[in-house]
Each structure stands twice: as C-alpha cells, then as structure tokens.
C-alpha cells in the first residue's frame, strides 16, 4: 500500500510541477505568440491591398491606412473580407476567395481589389496542394504580374487557351484557371455587392472564420 501511495504522490507532484512550469511559460510567451500570429495575417493582407497607382506584386508594400484592415473584417457569402480605409473613405478590399477545381482540391487565396475601379491590387495564395514546380508556380509574383494592376474590363480574365489574355502556366493550365476562378469570384463580389460590403458592420471578433473556408 505505501508503494501505491508513493506512486500516486510522485506522479501528482511531478505532473503538478510540470503544469505550474508550463503555466508560467505560457504567461511569458502568450503576448509574443498572439503578436506573431496577427502579424502573419496582417502581412498577407498588406501584400494585396492597394498602395500605388499601378500595383506590382514583386514590389514590397508598406501601405498605411487610417484603420486597421485586420480588425475591420466582415463575412459575406462565406467570403471573409478585410476593408482598408483612407481619409474616411473605403479604398481597398482584401477578399478571401476559394478557387474551385484545382489540380488537387481547391485553393484558398486572398484577393486584393481597389474599391474605386476594381483593379486587382494583389493576389496571395494562402493554401494550395498543386504540384510543386508546376502548378505551384502560380504563387510567384512574376506570374502574377500579368494580372495584378488590371481592372475587371482591362483584359480578358481567362487563360490564352480559353481565348483570354492570361498566359497559362506551361503544363498547369488547370491551376492557372483555378486562380482566375478565385479572382473572378472576388471581382463579382466587388461589382455586385459593393454597397453591401461598404455598409456592413465589422465582425466583433476579426479572427472569426467565415464558413466557405
């Protein structure tokens, strides 16, 4: 019986000590961790929001807005939309958009749209499972340069194989199409639901996940 008691005490003490230690550690690291996670999302958002007259995906952006686009998010039709404001006016949107029918599953992108004219200000692929070195090349800024900076009516938003203006990635037409599909969804939201987006109340907790993801 004393053996059992000893086991009980040793395990309890050690587990308790470990718990205490971890709790202390948690207090120390909680702040930096939240900050890091915020920055990570923020970086993708800033990457796609408008900064220059003619946005270039290969140039690093450091646009400053009046508000915190990260905390000014809404959900619409399952899309999560971050809003950027300048001088009291809504200037840009970063729209989470899913491209259907990728080579493997779907892709999740963040599409930046300028509020005034719908120009694509950036596209960031947040999640994909395309073939490395083939379909996955669509994450490269050099590839995105031919899309970013154009308005919805400036070019034909489909791959050359389908009669559009966008070069398909050699050997990965499906991935290219899929990216355009995600962009098209965001453009449609901007065109048809612009007012709604502008007027919607921001989410209480901007970390909320909208269902289409």
């Amino acid at each position: 019986m004393p053996e059992t008691l000893k086991m009980l005490i040793v395990l309890t003490v050690i587990a308790g000590a470990a718990g205490l230690g971890l709790a202390g550690m948690h207090d120390v690291t909680e702040g930096p961790i939240i900050e890091n996670e915020r920055n990570f999302t923020l970086r993708s958002i800033t990457k796609v929001l408008p900064d220059a007259e003619k946005p270039d995906p290969c140039v690093k952006k450091d646009a400053v807005f009046d508000n915190e686009p990260m905390n000014d998010a809404i959900c619409l039709d399952g899309h999560k939309i971050y809003r950027a404001r300048k001088n009291g006016e809504l200037v840009g949107l970063a729209i989470e958009s899913i491209g259907d029918k990728a080579y493997d599953g779907t892709i999740l992108t963040l599409v930046g749209v300028r509020m005034s004219d719908g120009v694509l200000t950036g596209v960031e692929v947040l999640r994909h499972r395309e073939t490395p070195g083939l379909g996955a090349l669509f994450t490269r800024c050099e590839y995105q340069q031919q899309m970013v900076g154009n308005g919805p009516d400036d070019i034909k938003w489909s791959v050359k194989k389908d009669g559009g203006d966008i070069d398909q990635l050699s050997g990965a037409t499906i991935s290219s199409r899929c990216m355009l599909n995600a962009i098209a969804k965001a453009q449609r939201l901007w065109r048809e639901r612009g007012d709604e987006i502008a007027q919607a109340e921001p989410l209480e907790d901007s970390r909320e996940v909208c269902d289409a993801r």
Partner: peptide, 8 residues
Amino acid sequence: AFPGPLTR
C-alpha cells in the same frame, strides 16, 4: 524533379 521540362 523537373516537372516543367518533363511535361513540355
């Protein structure tokens, strides 16, 4: 290794 060149 070379998905690009091998599918051209």
